[in-house]
Amino acid sequence: MADIAARNPAGHPTQQRSGLHKLMQRKSTIAFLMALPLILLITILVAYPAGYAVYLATLNKGMTRFVGFGNFEFLFGRDTFWLVVYQSCLFAITAVIFKAIIGFVVAHFVHNIPAKGQRKWRGMLLVPWVIPPAMSTLAWLWLFDPSYSALNWLLAIMGFEGIPWTGEAGWARFSVILVNVWIGSPFFMIMYLAALKSVPEQLYEAASIDGATWWQRIWYVTLPMMRNIIAITALFSLIVTFANFDIVRVLTAGGPLNSTHIFGTWAFRVGIEGGDIPLGAAVSLFMVPILAVAATFILRDITKRGSEV
């Protein structure tokens, strides 16, 4: 970022006439100054800490000595770490798949009903996305309460046994995914609904006349037309879900027995609560590979569309 500043006056193409050149130079200077607060913010509070995390991860617990890959070696030898890796992947992938499916299905239903009622339904179905996640997770925590669970009460009425929602490893994993799907699928619904609106109606009519079943219409018309938006929404959501913190922290705090910890919550437990900042930094760095892959795909898609326009 800093070299922009240094090379700014000299870096401009100098082929223009001198008067115009001067103007261009002035314009670019003003533009740079206008973007300066943004550049400073990104450099100091995002880019620098991100790089600093890498350096921190190579120090010992007291941050007095360089230990190289010591923290990583330590992590690889711990069972809890592999549990966190497994749970992070399970959590993110399962949640994104279910969010995408529910979002797609609900978007279809909203799209099917008459246009004048759509706004009302859309507004109602987006509510989970608007409530601060920490607050809505509290409501879920109360719905999952071991002794007063309102969900178990409903199950009891239907003749089922109560479920230990957050008390047992398998169910706790299911619960955090359920809450994440509840919060995230409205976002998918809105994105897919916008995409559905852009599919020309004639394509469906043509497909119907050719005798296509509803399944064929979805498979051969809707999905190919929406492919791009499905991919980009899923990638966005994958990043956010993988880096989640609020839901797991409030609902289970990683328990029972660390079975629901994901990278974000475990890094918090180790780094802030456990006081081992370098180890926490090392844990959080494991999010980078998957974020980088998703970001690359998103960027490629955006530049591709940019060049088409």
Partner: peptide, 14 residues
């Protein structure tokens, strides 16, 4: 795209 879960530990030290 950089999540806050990646930044809070270095910020803590900063």
């Amino acid at each position: 795209l950089i999540p806050e879960t990646l930044l809070f530990i270095p910020l803590f030290k900063m």
